[in-house]
Simulated assay, not measured.
Amino acid sequence: MALVENKNILEFLGLVGRLKHVKRTGWVICDIDNCESIAGHMYRMGLMTFLLTDENDPFKLDRFRCLQIALVHDLAESIVGDITPHCGVSPEEKHRREDEAMKTIAELTGLAGDRMYELFQEYENQSSPEAKFAKDLDRYDMILQAYEYEKRDNAPKKLEEFFKATYGKFNHPFIQDLAKELYKQREEFEKKAVLNGNV
């Protein structure tokens, strides 16, 4: 097998580097100032995989695989951008574009790219317990970020749509417990805002 050329690796790293600067579309649409990048979202998802332990993970997930899926699940966005339901693109077309982008990325990096494409497909198809956990992380990081923006901007309930879109969709008990704690803190924040006349 031919060695992957360094110029291709640099092209790959350049694509990945874009994700450090591309803002997530959902926050842009909601007029959130200084909103997170796609890479920032993937980074925190990745770190959350380290929080799995023998005690809080009855499914005994492969933590390294969870980390890998978290790090590649949005890689295609380096080429196609962050497509949301508000963008007027059908789910089928979104999948087609992202699949093509991942194939392009895979071609640049040989065996490593084949591995990334396989993990991306696993996530897209939700075909493993690890992929399902990564989906939980994706949704949880989104509502955690929404709550952080509500607190930062002193705007309780401003991003309620993100909570409604994910409510009842968490499957892993560890993430379910984290979501309960987040809901509790958010409710307390809203009550204080009402008392202070901020709502």
Score class of each variant (00 low, 15 high):
A2S: 14
N6F: 15
I9K: 14
G17Q: 08
H21E: 14
K23D: 03
T25H: 09
G26F: 00
V28I: 04
I29M: 03
C30S: 15
D31G: 06
A39E: 07
G40H: 01
R44I: 15
M45N: 07
G46R: 01
L47Q: 15
F59T: 08
F59W: 14
L61E: 04
F64T: 12
L67E: 06
Q68P: 07
I69E: 00
I69Q: 00
A70Q: 07
L71R: 10
V72T: 12
H73F: 10
A76Y: 01
I79C: 00
V80T: 12
V80Q: 01
I83H: 05
T84H: 05
E93R: 09
H95Y: 12
R96S: 13
A101T: 04
M102N: 07
T104C: 04
I105A: 04
L111T: 15
R115Q: 09
M116F: 02
F120D: 01
F120K: 01
Y123L: 12
E124R: 14
Q126H: 13
S127R: 14
S128H: 08
F133V: 05
D136F: 01
D138M: 00
R139I: 10
D141E: 15
I143C: 00
A146Q: 03
P156C: 10
K158W: 03
K158P: 00
E161Q: 12
F162V: 02
F163V: 02
A165K: 07
A165H: 10
T166H: 11
T166R: 08
G168M: 04
G168N: 07
H172N: 10
F174E: 03
I175L: 04
D177Y: 00
A179C: 13
K184A: 11
Q185I: 04
Q185A: 09
E190M: 05
A193E: 07
V199A: 08
